[in-house]
Simulated assay, not measured.
Amino acid sequence: MWNPEVYLAFADQRGRPFVDLMARVGADTPRRVVDLGCGPGNLTVALAQRWPAAVIEAWDSSPEMVQAARERGVDARIGDVRDWTPAPDTDVVVSNATLHWVPEHAELLVRWASQLRPGAWIAMQVPGNFDAPSHRAVRELAERPPWSEPLRDMPFRDGKVVSSAVEYAGLLTDAGCAVDAWETTYVHELQGKHPVLEWITGTALTPVKSRLTDEQWQQFRRELIPLLDEAYPARPDGTTFFPFRRVFVVAQVGSPSRAASAR
């Protein structure tokens, strides 16, 4: 179960990639803007502010996140992004920090590119840190007794969850899009006791918690703390630097240059 309050504990820093992603979307007056994986809706609100005349469509698979989004005035619905099909007036599709939860998301991107009208935009951002010390520590601990049994089907069991910016660029170029793809490593300055643990509690550890009892969950956290504190030591001033790599793709469907080269 997703907890919007835990997720929003680092809202400003989690929101920065969304701002960087949307800065590269060149839509002027889109009719419909779709946010797939809207979470608690705090960033979806920014889409409505940028394009006040557009219909804002928001989806998330978590009932808790959808409820939090609705409380912000977002007309969000519960749904799996794999089930989404664009309406004819869809001009912008945004998926921020969501598609890494969908193993077949590469096929989804190609499908959306084939379904959207020429000139429509696809903008997506996914974490690219699945081989970072934080995630390696979680995987290593999950493979030890007594965790190996309840966590045997935990997602992200290896570091190959998402592709590189180059791979996504090739995928969507072949699908007839003009593509802008890049990777950025943000160095987050975190404060407090065990801040990396608190960060990943709101995201990567969600499927871990869902598979454990409350007592097991607290014990897992206690065993994870020294692994994370060793990988991300606090500075003398109390700051912990947390590098976080992210992968960005902005694609415009059926651009004239791509369509000409495809003929």
Rank of each mutant, 00 (worst) to 15 (best):
N3Y: 03
E5D: 14
E5Y: 06
E5C: 02
V6W: 05
V6P: 00
A9Q: 15
F10M: 12
Q13R: 09
G15T: 13
R16Q: 14
P17A: 11
F18N: 13
V19C: 12
V19L: 13
D20L: 13
L21G: 12
M22Q: 14
M22N: 13
A23L: 08
G26T: 03
A27L: 13
D35T: 14
D35L: 07
L36Y: 09
T44C: 12
A46K: 15
A54P: 02
I56N: 09
W59K: 13
S62E: 02
V66E: 13
Q67F: 09
A68T: 04
A68L: 07
R72Y: 14
D75E: 08
I78L: 05
I78A: 01
G79P: 08
D83F: 01
D83G: 15
W84I: 13
T85M: 08
T85A: 10
A87L: 10
P88Q: 12
P88Y: 03
N96Y: 00
A97R: 04
T98F: 01
L99V: 02
H100K: 02
H100Q: 11
W101A: 05
A106Q: 02
L109D: 07
V110P: 11
V110W: 00
W112G: 03
W112L: 14
S114C: 02
Q115S: 05
P118S: 13
A120H: 08
A120S: 14
W121K: 06
W121G: 10
A123K: 06
Q125A: 11
P127F: 01
G128L: 06
R136T: 14
R136D: 15
A137W: 02
A137T: 12
A137Y: 01
R139W: 05
L141S: 11
P145Y: 08
W147G: 07
E149I: 05
L151E: 01
D153C: 07
M154A: 01
D158C: 09
G159F: 00
V161L: 03
V162H: 02
S164T: 15
S164N: 06
S164H: 06
L172A: 01
G176R: 11
G176Q: 04
C177Y: 04
A178K: 13
V179N: 11
D180L: 12
A181V: 13
E183H: 04
T184C: 07
T184Y: 03
H188Y: 11
H188T: 10
H188C: 05
E189G: 15
K193T: 15
P195Q: 07
L197M: 13
L197P: 12
E198I: 14
W199H: 11
I200H: 05
T203W: 09
P207E: 07
S210H: 09
S210D: 15
R211A: 10
R211V: 10
D214E: 14
W217R: 12
F220K: 02
F220A: 02
E223V: 07
I225T: 02
I225F: 00
P226S: 08
L227E: 14
L227S: 09
E230M: 04
E230P: 04
A234L: 06
A234W: 01
R235W: 00
R235C: 06
F241I: 09
F241L: 12
F242R: 04
F242T: 12
R246G: 04
V249F: 00
V253T: 10
G254D: 00
P256N: 07
R258L: 11
A259Q: 05
S261F: 04
S261V: 00
